[in-house]
Simulated assay, not measured.
Amino acid sequence: MAVALVAAATLATATPAEAGQTSLRAADPSVLRVGGTYISVQSTGGGIAVRQASSTDGLAAAPARQVWSDTRNLGEVWAPEITTDAGRYYIYFSAGRGPAHRMYAISSASAASGYTAETRLALPDDKWAVDGAMFVFAGQRYFVWSGWAGDTNVEQNLYLARMSSPTTTTGGRFVISQPRESWERVVGNPFINEGPQPIRDPDGRLHIVYSANGSWSDQYCLADLRLRAGGDPTYVWDWYKSNGCQFGSNRATMMAGWDPTVSANGPGHHTFVLLNGDIATSPPAGPRFPLMYHAVPKGTPYAWENRHWYTGIFAWWGGSTYTRANVPGATSDTGFGLKFFE
C-alpha cells in the first residue's frame, strides 16, 4: 500500500482543483470504462444524459447526449446507474413523486443512443425505491437498492434481491443494512443508507459501499459492508459493517485509522469506475484505482445545488477488522477495507 500512502501525503495539501473537483455541477455520478472510453450518466433536463471521454477528468467537458426523456411525466428522475450485461448497456434509475418513487430500466446496444422505453422493475414488496444497481456475484445476478420498509419515510435501508434477468427480480427482498450505528445517525429525518455500490475485493469477497447520513449535510460519507468469506449475500448477519465512515469530512465519524477529507466536503454517492461496469473486473490488491463521487467544495455553503462531480482514487486496505455486538455470528471479521483519497 506504499503508493496509496504516498497519494495520501501528496493530496493532504492539495487545492480543490488539484483534489479532483470538476466543473460539472451535478450529483450521483455513475461511470464505467469500455476499452479506453469512460462513459457516464446523469439526471438532467427532465431525463438522462450520457457523456463519453478518454478519461474521468474529461467527462465534465464532454457533450451531454440525452438518451431518455420523461415523456410520461413519471416525476423526479434520480441517480441513474449504468452497467453492461451480455454486451448490452443498462441504465437503472428512480422516478416518481414522494412515496411513488420506483426503479426503472432502459437498455441499448450502444452507450449513447438507441435506448428502449423505460421498464418498471417489479421489486419485491413494491415500496419506495432509489439508487438501484445490478451486479453478478458467484454466478448469480443481484439487484441492490435503497428503500423504505413500509410506506412512510422513516429510514432508508439497503435491500438485495436475486434476478433472473437484468430487468426481472425473483424471490423476496432481503434487508442487508439499516442506519442504526451512532456515526450514521448524526443527521436524520430520515436516517439513511443509500447509493449502494457493489465491488469485489482481492480475496473474492463482496462489498457494498454506501452513503450514510443526510445528503443535505456535510456529514454525508461513505461506509463499507463486507460479506464474510463464503457468506450468503441475502442473509443480513453474513454482512459486517465498517466501524465508521471510510470517506468523509468529519473526523468524529471516521473509522479509527481513516482520515477526513481536506478539500471535498461531505463526499458521497460514488461510483467505482469498473471495466464494463462488471465487479468481476474489480481491481486487485495494489496501488490505486479511479473513482468518482459528488461533494461540495469546502468553504462553500453545503447545499444540493453546490454539489460537483469529483475524481478521486481508492485502494484496497488489508487487515481491516470490523466489529459488532448483540447479533448472531462472530463479533469481528478481518479482511480488506477501502481507503479513499481526494
Score class of each variant (00 low, 15 high):
P283C: 09
M292E: 15
I313E: 11
H308Q: 02
R288H: 11
E305G: 07
P283T: 02
S320V: 04
P283A: 15
Y302G: 00
W304A: 15
A315S: 15
W316R: 00
A285Q: 14
G312S: 12
Y293P: 05
T281N: 15
G286W: 12
T321G: 02
Y293K: 02
S282R: 13
Y322C: 00
N306F: 04
R288Q: 15
M292Y: 10
W304C: 03
Y310Q: 04
P284M: 15
G299E: 06
I313P: 00
S282P: 07
T321Q: 08
T300Q: 09
R288G: 15
I313T: 09
P287L: 03
A285L: 14
F314R: 04
A285M: 09
G299C: 08
A280M: 05
I279R: 00
T321H: 02
R288D: 14
P290G: 07
A303G: 02
K298E: 11
I279Y: 00
A295E: 11
P283E: 03
T323E: 08
G286Y: 10
A315H: 09
G299R: 04
G318N: 14
W317A: 15
Y322N: 00
H308N: 06
A315C: 13
A295K: 12
S320H: 01
G318M: 07
G277R: 10
D278I: 07
G299S: 13
D278G: 09
P290Q: 07
H294A: 07
W316C: 01
I313K: 08
P284Y: 13
